[in-house]
Amino acid sequence: MPHDHSDHDHPHTLLPSDPALRVKALETILVAKGLVDPSAMEAILDTYEHKVGPHLGAAVVARAWTDPAFRARLVADATAAVAELGISGRQGEHVVAVENTPETHNMVVCTLCSCYPWPLLGIPPGWYKSDAYRARAVREPRKVLAEFGVTLPEGQKVRVWDSTAEVRYLVVPMRPEGTEGMDAVALAALVTRDSMIGTGLPGPPR
């Protein structure tokens, strides 16, 4: 007797991918041994999915543009200065703010892996973690910048900072011209993620 049941292809729950099962296995073991607390994992996910992101770094840059005393503190000790705004680094990490000037443009890379100022910018974009960027940012930064659409004046040097597990860099871009009347909130909207990595420039005033 012919029969067809529409469910034939999926009589059981769909099997997750190989890496998904491997992660699940590790999590099961570590939670069972009490090494990891599932609620701590949830809090971490919530933080990185919903709370931290480039808007935090942008607020820091805008404050530096509008408050010279804060700017001085930021350049002297960025870890302490961003803590004033309620942004705390992960344990044992220092944030260093590097200011762009007409003489020097700063750009950040991690040649070891993907070190990045998470508390200020969130999870790094894919290109930051790619071999192409990691290898070329140091070797040919101007060419890489050109691919991002950034052409610097000839007289402006490029300085590339290599992040580590201990030191994370935040580029403080130059405040765009024509923004004199803007307050910190309006200015923060001009500060892009890439401008704080050094592969972009802040947007023009709208």
Partner: peptide, 18 residues
């Protein structure tokens, strides 16, 4: 890109923070 990547990230950070 995938939920398991988020779980992996959280698991690693949680181990470090603990």
């Amino acid at each position: 890109d995938e939920p398991w990547q988020a779980q992996l990230f959280a698991l690693t950070v949680a181990l470090n923070e603990a």
